[in-house]
Design a binder for these strands. Structure first.
Lengths: 406, 406
DNA sequence: ACCAATTTGTTCGCAGGAAGAACAAAACGC
DNA sequence: GCGTTTTGTTCTTCCTGCGAACAAATTGGT
């Protein structure tokens, strides 16, 4: 029961049904490939005639491909259809505080090249550096297919429509138009998105095929900060001012430790990697000295995990406390949005076996119903570059998304 | 960019464009009535021919009406169109812990009759009582129009599709099928919904006409408990297990006061009416004795407000603290979802002038961006029966909602 | 009083595309 | 080779958006 916005609606034309059915068919091919025309007709509940017509249109556009003959017990053998992905390339860019990652991949997420360099904070210089690398990658892998766009993920608020980065404290950017410059420098369409949202997009568009198409889930990223990408009704929630998903700065305790945002007791101040390290070292995080002390000692989150695994009881305790607070925050999300599942990404997942019990206990304590207490929490295994996969989704998703109508 | 669910999609047929445009037109009439065909054609950007055809269809169905001639500086005078609401009736039912409210109203929300009775907790008995009253109302106001359905609002989780009440602690119901029984007893279609969601629906469908069509907002109800109805992209969020919006049981402080849900420090335990009264009396809320003490003294939330207004400094302080915690919880919603606005309903609104400053201060302290800190918080004035209006929306909304497509 | 101008509302013909039936093609077993 | 079965194409029908032409209603100027 969606309300129609009388200021910003989209009329249906004669060709609207075709657009809709085209996208449905394309998504069915995507989820069930390899698949025959006759099978598609059965799944869609339409005649094979219509499928033929839609398929030939998609074939002409190069959206799908005919593959081998399939096998059938009786009758004519079907020709199988696939989505064309292998020779359609994307440049995925992940700008992080320390380093920037650039990956060349195809629409499926298969990695062709990956390079990283130290992040340049000056927007113009970053664009120049990126443009040079994109140019090199496009030239070097020209034979593998055509690059159809650049997907870029940044920490901070982004206005998807204009492509402007409204505010990124980590990079020190305010209302910067990187998209326009990068498009001009490379001649490729550029899509920019906020990092946790991109991770949610990666789950939505590149997650396991034929999954139950979870249309309601939350992706929580735990690294230096804590953020969340929220998906409701198959759509990402961006918020009115582009700042939705900032669960990281919801207070768990008004008297809690100081957070980098200036407030006290933020969820992030309990469960971010920095918080875990600070807890292990027995330091208070926020007073600037504490933070520098953490940095000086050169102990990172991964070191804490390693020590916990090799018998350091204090490290183990620090991690378990992180797990407990992680669970409390997740319980908040369960109560607020009751998603069908919550994905967790970031370095914590490497210690999941050490903290899972604490996480689940905390959720059970706080969940309102037994069903909610059982909400699946799915750690995304490390090393899958969820942000880069999100960047790929930024380019690939528009081809598969439902047409906007009404 | 909505993802198409390949398990549960809806094909477009030949008549899909018509359905879509029909609903757009109907909504335009609703928002701009009285309005002429030519004006609609201009607003929709289509020829007048198509408008004529759609309008005659809607006229034939009785969805809209032709009214007076309008006035124009030159040329033929237009005939104005209206949505037909006056003679289309709804029975709205609000089942609360103490009393049940039954209202007869038209589609516009104009009240024709309102009665209340003490809530019967036994489902079968309640249905019987309701059926008798509906029968009486329908008979008594037969001349005013035809009753097109019953909208029912209950405290607790509801499965909208099946109409079953999954769990209502307040009423002591678990997996009860009131809808089927009430439909059988009255012969009218029945829609059931959870209370905070219904309040959000009331805002969405019966809120001020031609408002900016806020498609992203949250309605927070503060009474005995604290709940929220969340609207994203023009759609209500129900959650995977029908328990979305339970912000009331997110902890503000793990060491805080006990909540009726059993946990500690819930937002509800700080800002519900009971919490305010308990704070005023200096009692701890949750231990069963405290709660009974509050009841025994016979002081309600309204009494605290009255005393605060007549110079009782302790009452004033208790309310202001409630305001502060209310603000902290609202800040959480702002950070999590960044809605375009937050509506607040319930008895607190009667003391809004006393607490507004505290609310706004708390939000400012916790919001991440200046824009988020300025998020409009709109108290709904008391006595407007938002839950009953939500019940009306349950019946009226399907006529205006966007058709589900793709 | 009549005519031009202007605006509203209706009708009609064209064309895009869903829907389904008829038809052609391919494979298998007898 | 021939019937059977399944796949894929083609063709006809009909719904409906879309634009153009037309009818109706009103005002103001001559």
């Amino acid at each position: 029961m969606r309300k129609i916005n009388t200021r910003d609606f989209k009329l249906a034309t004669r060709s609207t049904p075709r657009e809709i059915n085209r996208q449905i068919l394309l998504n069915l091919v995507r989820d069930h490939q390899p698949v025959s025309r006759a099978d598609l007709a059965r799944r869609m509940g339409v005649g094979r005639g219509m499928v033929t017509s839609l398929v030939s249109e998609l074939l002409a556009e190069g959206a799908i491909l005919e593959g081998d003959m399939g096998d059938a017990p009786r009758g004519r053998k079907p020709t199988m259809l696939h989505v064309r992905t292998r020779d359609r390339l994307v440049v995925a860019v992940d700008v992080r505080f320390t380093r920037t990652f650039v990956m060349l991949s195809d629409f499926d997420g298969t990695q062709l090249a990956l390079e990283t360099f130290e992040t340049v904070f000056e927007p113009a210089a970053l664009v120049e550096e990126l443009a040079a690398r994109v140019h090199r990658l496009v030239g070097g892998y020209g034979a593998a297919g055509a690059v159809e766009g650049i997907g870029m993920v940044v920490p901070g608020m982004v206005d998807r429509r204009t492509g402007r980065i409204l505010n990124s404290p980590q990079l020190g950017w305010r209302d910067v138009d990187v998209r326009g410059d990068l498009e001009a420098a490379t001649g490729l369409p550029v899509h920019i998105e906020n990092a946790p949202i991109a991770c949610a997009l990666a789950q939505m568009w590149l997650g396991q095929r034929g999954g139950d198409g979870a249309a309601d889930f939350v992706y929580v990223t735990v690294s230096d900060g804590v953020g969340a990408g929220v998906v409701v009704n198959g759509q990402v929630v961006r918020g009115h001012g582009h700042t939705a998903g900032e669960f990281g700065h919801v207070p768990l305790d008004p008297e809690g430790p100081y957070c980098l945002c200036g407030a006290r007791g933020c969820w992030e101040a309990y469960t971010s990697n920095l918080a875990t390290v600070a807890r292990y070292l027995g330091q208070d995080l926020a007073p600037e000295q504490g933070r520098r002390a953490v940095k000086r000692l050169g102990i990172g989150f991964d070191d804490v995990v390693t020590r916990a695994r090799t018998g350091d009881a204090r490290a183990r305790a620090a991690l378990q406390e992180t797990g407990r607070y992680l669970g409390l925050g997740l319980a908040m999300i369960v109560n607020a949005l009751n998603p069908s599942r919550i994905f967790v990404g970031g370095e914590v997942t490497s210690a999941w076996d050490l903290i899972e019990e604490q996480v689940r206990t905390a959720i059970s304590e706080r969940a309102l119903t037994p069903a909610a207490a059982r909400s699946p929490i799915i750690p995304e295994q490390a090393g899958t570059h969820p942000r880069l996969r999100g960047a790929i989704a930024l380019v690939a998703a528009p081809l598969f998304a439902a047409p906007q109508v009404a």
